[in-house]
């Protein structure tokens, strides 16, 4: 699973930067087209939910999603891993 912030909903309150046990969210520095400093993700693959939600079949930590007052945090299913086709030319 992949952690995403919905830029359309985020209002830049930075509560996620406070509650994540892994400190994945960092205060944003660049304003988006709405003028909101959307937090940035620091190595989101460390998120428990990203790694193990598929395995356990349920939301594991999810505190950031529950806390986010703007319903902007969620997880999307990543496309199944496809080994890259490499054509080797001689």
């Amino acid at each position: 699973m992949k952690l995403v912030i919905d830029e359309n909903r985020c209002k830049g309150c930075n509560l996620c930067t406070l509650v994540c046990p892994y400190r994945i969210f960092r205060p944003g520095t660049r304003a988006n087209r709405k003028g909101v400093l959307v937090p940035e993700l620091d190595r989101p693959e460390r998120c428990t939910n990203c790694r193990l939600q598929g395995l356990y079949g349920r939301t594991l930590c999810g505190v950031c999603q529950l806390t986010c007052p703007d319903q902007a945090i969620g997880w999307v299913r990543e496309r199944p891993y496809e080994p890259a086709k490499i054509e080797v030319e001689y």
Binding site: N8, R9, C13, L66, C68, P69, D70, Q71
Partner: peptide, 16 residues
């Protein structure tokens, strides 16, 4: 969505 509440308003959290 997005809702009318201000940035950082707890109401969204409580709704969740």
């Amino acid at each position: 969505l997005p809702h009318i509440w201000c940035s950082g308003c707890s109401n969204g959290t409580i709704l969740n």
